[in-house]
């Protein structure tokens, strides 16, 4: 029986190693400084890069972070400070559902309310769609990192005559900010890899983004678009972009792992 269990573990881990191995093998030849700093060229024209997609991704993920973090942190504070309320239960449940929701439906939603209204695919619509992807992650991790702040610190602050709102904003968040930061990093990692919602919102553009109200390229979209193209050099570029994206994901996730492990190991042991 132990054999079967070990087999299952192997079956689960092998694909990860294969994917990383193949992405590195296929993507490494494409990698160069010029690849990261040049804008895309038409098929067959050498010297093309993915700079516009990188900038589009940075722009949209950055804007999405600015939208999602205040709302997500706010909701997380509400879940952890007022867990007994009915709204807290309903919203926390909805948040779980939203976190697992097909992101393509979020894309349709943003298409209907933003793209149709502005009559244009745009970086702004893409950022809003990504913000909805990030929101539940930020809310949940905020809640969890605030909940493990010991009650004794909260009470120490209240006993000093500090009003509740200041206790929450300064002491509770001050103590839980490492966890909060990890949550934001995780949500950024997630948003940076999302393709489906961008298909219907930001679409694609080979140019360096100049306006929030114009379509914008992104790394994941470029991987999809170039990967399915019939041109060998575009496909190579897709693998190069994939390597960049995977490296970014792994880096972010490992940072978070090491960070959480150090910071919270003591607290976790209590459970």
């Amino acid at each position: 029986m132990t054999g079967l269990i070990l087999l299952a573990v192997a079956v689960a881990v092998v694909p990860l190693l294969l994917i990383i191995g193949d992405v590195v093998a296929q993507g490494a030849p494409a990698m160069s400084l010029a690849f990261l700093t040049n804008t895309p060229t038409p098929p067959g024209v050498p010297g093309g890069g993915i700079a516009s997609a990188i900038q589009g991704s940075v722009l949209m993920v950055g804007l999405a972070t600015l939208i999602a973090v205040p709302i997500g942190v706010g909701a997380g504070i509400y879940f952890s400070e007022w867990p007994e309320s009915r709204l807290s239960f309903l919203s926390s449940f909805t948040n779980d559902v939203l976190a697992e929701f097909p992101t393509i439906t979020l894309g349709i939603f943003v298409y209907l309310i933003i793209v149709l209204a502005t009559r244009s695919f745009s970086a702004l619509a893409g950022a809003i769609a990504l913000a909805i992807v990030m929101l539940p992650i930020v809310a949940r991790t905020t809640e969890e990192s605030l909940k493990i702040v010991p009650v004794s610190l909260r009470e120490a602050s209240m006993a000093l005559g500090v009003p509740r709102w200041k206790t929450v904003l300064r002491v509770v968040i001050g103590t839980g900010k490492a966890g909060l930061g990890t949550g934001v990093l995780l949500s950024v990692a997630r948003a940076a890899g999302e393709t489906a919602p961008l298909l219907l919102t930001a679409l694609y553009s080979p140019f360096i983004p100049r306006s929030l109200f114009l379509p914008a390229g992104s790394i994941p979209y470029l991987i999809y678009y170039y990967g399915l193209s019939p041109f060998a050099d575009w496909r190579t570029a897709a693998w190069g972009a994939a390597l960049l994206l995977v490296a970014f994901m792994l880096l972010l996730n490992l940072t978070v792992k090491v960070f959480i492990g150090r910071r919270f190991s003591g607290v976790r042991a209590e459970f």
Binding site: P70, I71, G72, V73, G74, A75, I77, Y78, F79, E81, W82, S85, L87, S88, L90, S91, S92, T94, N95, V97, L98, F101, T105, L106, I108, F109, L112, I113, I132, L135, P136, A139, P163, R164, W165, K166, V168, L169
Partner: peptide
């Protein structure tokens, strides 16, 4: 007032999540 302000601000964020999902369904 500070307490009430904080509570209503974060409650609005929490309510926003519920409204978002509801509105998503309605739009579709």
């Amino acid at each position: 007032r500070g307490d009430a302000l904080l509570k209503s601000a974060v409650a609005a964020a929490a309510a926003g999540i519920v409204i978002l999902l509801f509105f998503l369904g309605v739009e579709l």
